[in-house]
């Protein structure tokens, strides 16, 4: 059997803080097949961005293993890291802060090619123009600076830069959160087109359930560093099993005139601290089903075809 494009096994990333160990990512496992999208959803502080960054070695993992095309990429030296990064790129959330304000668009997109010493100067320029066309940036913008472009165009530049080295895998960290809906739709369509044409795989990190539903093949729901539920997209929305997933879906205001303001159930309380968490379920303090058994360590179990959940209550 062919190895999945990316496999993550029991990944942990802890940060040392003055008050103790912060469990940002705690024992997370999943794999991504070529040409598919894994959505990672959760609220702020759940560890979803740390997860994306740890995979790209922007943070060094505390524990666990990562494999890319079957090759162990957990511990890499500088040279190996550079080699693997050509295949793994990142799109950041905020196109206002992730572009160098003093670099022209063409230089920003060309920079990865320069770093990897690909082609001659002319070839690099040609490739840059080609990528700009691919992401829908007009050629006349090549010598513009980021401040001359609006959010949607800037995000296209960020996408173009990520594509420059023909990567196989891209971590998209909230790529459309800073954009207005009409522009958001343009970028989502672009990401889908690129995936189809180039067989790209994405990890798509977002807090927006409707966006993740649109773009993902499979979804992981994170809560305080752990994946609490993982299953194919349609299944998650049809049959959410973890109490947190259910609460999350119920919290989203429904678009349309049907909402008469009637009471939907709202979960109370806020996230507890990720520093030195107690053993057992981390959603315990907000969960309406909480019982004594929840204080024990929970097992991430398969409860249906491809449907995993971290809750002992689910049968």
């Amino acid at each position: 059997m062919k190895a999945p494009l990316l496999e993550v096994r029991n990944l942990k990333k802890y940060f040392t803080t003055g008050r103790g160990l912060l469990h940002a990512v705690d024992d997370v496992s999943f794999s991504i097949e070529e040409g598919t999208t894994l959505g990672v959803v959760g609220e702020s502080g759940c560890g979803k961005s740390t997860l994306g960054r740890t995979i790209l070695h922007l943070y060094e993992p505390t524990d666990g293993k990562m494999f890319f095309e079957g090759r162990d990429i957990t511990n890499l030296d500088k040279r190996q890291l550079k080699e693997i990064r050509a295949n793994m790129q990142m799109i950041f959330q905020d196109p206002y802060s992730s572009l160098d304000p003093r670099k022209m668009i063409e230089d920003t997109i060309m920079e990865p090619l320069k770093v990897y010493k690909i082609g001659t100067k002319e070839e690099r320029l040609q490739k840059t123009m080609e990528i700009m066309r691919m992401v829908g940036l007009d050629e006349r913008l090549r010598q513009s600076f980021p401040h001359e472009l609006n959010g949607g165009r800037r995000q296209r530049v960020v996408v173009a830069r990520a594509l420059a080295l023909n990567p196989k895998f891209i971590v998209c960290d909230e790529p459309v959160s800073a954009l207005d809906v009409s522009v958001q739709a343009q970028i989502l369509n672009l990401l889908r087109d690129l995936q189809k044409e180039h067989g790209l795989s994405y990890i798509f990190i977002t807090h927006d359930m409707s966006v993740v539903r649109h773009i993902s093949d499979e979804i992981c729901v994170m809560y305080l560093g752990q994946i609490v539920e993982k299953c194919p997209t349609a299944e998650l929305f049809k049959n959410p099993l973890h109490p947190y997933t259910q609460a999350l879906l119920a919290s989203i205001p429904v678009v349309g005139a049907d909402d008469d303001g009637s009471e939907t159930e709202i979960i109370q309380g806020e996230l507890s601290s990720p520093i030195n968490p107690k053993p057992g379920c981390r959603f315990f303090n907000r969960c309406k089903y909480a019982c004594e058994k929840c204080r024990e360590e929970q097992q991430f179990r398969e409860v249906g075809p491809g449907h995993h959940v971290l809750c002992h209550m689910v049968k």
Partner: peptide, 30 residues
Amino acid sequence: IFSNPSHPYTQGLFAALPSMNEDVEYLHPI
């Protein structure tokens, strides 16, 4: 507004939203 959006911008805005209940391959940006 929701049952009878009349301005093309309003219609475009609603169409650009990813839906929670419907599957579409492509969104309709303005």
